[in-house]
Simulated assay, not measured.
Amino acid sequence: MNILFILIIAMLDQITKYIAKNTLAGKNISVFKDYLELTYVENRGAAFGLFQNMKFLLIVITAIVIVLMLYYLLKSKDLNKWMRISLILISAGAIGNLIDRVTLGYVTDFIHFYIKDMFDWPVFNVADICVVCGTILLAINILFAREE
Rank of each mutant, 00 (worst) to 15 (best):
I19G: 03
I129A: 12
K27G: 14
V107F: 05
S30F: 01
K116P: 01
I66C: 06
L7A: 02
Y106K: 00
V126R: 04
T39E: 15
F113L: 04
I9P: 13
A139N: 02
I19V: 07
V67C: 08
Q14N: 06
I140E: 00
Y35V: 08
Y106R: 03
S30W: 14
L57D: 02
L73M: 12
R44S: 14
K21Q: 06
D34K: 14
N125Q: 12
S76R: 05
F5K: 10
S91Y: 09
I64R: 03
D128Y: 03
E37Y: 05
V31P: 06
I64D: 07
P122M: 04
L68P: 01
K17P: 15
K33N: 07
L73T: 05
A63T: 00
D100E: 13
G134I: 12
T103A: 08
C133F: 02
I88V: 13
A25C: 05
Y106C: 10
V126H: 03
Y72G: 11
L58V: 10
I61V: 10
A145Q: 03
S86K: 11
I129V: 06
N97I: 10
C133W: 00
Y72T: 11
V107P: 03
D100K: 05
F51S: 10
R44A: 00
H112W: 09
V123G: 05
L24W: 14
V41M: 14
G93L: 09
A47I: 10
I115T: 13
S91F: 15
L79R: 07
L50S: 15
F113E: 02
D128T: 04
L68T: 09
I9L: 12
R44G: 05
L4H: 03
E42D: 11
G96K: 01
K75V: 02
A139S: 14
I15A: 01
A46C: 12
Q52R: 14
G96N: 02
Y114Q: 06
A20E: 13
I3A: 05
A20W: 10
I64P: 00
F48G: 01
L68Q: 07
I111R: 06
K116Q: 11
A94P: 07
I61K: 01
N22Q: 04
E148H: 07
C133D: 00
I3R: 04
M54N: 02
Y106A: 02
N28A: 15
L57R: 06
V123Q: 01
F124A: 05
V126S: 05
V123P: 15
A94H: 01
L24K: 12
R44P: 00
C130G: 01
I3G: 12
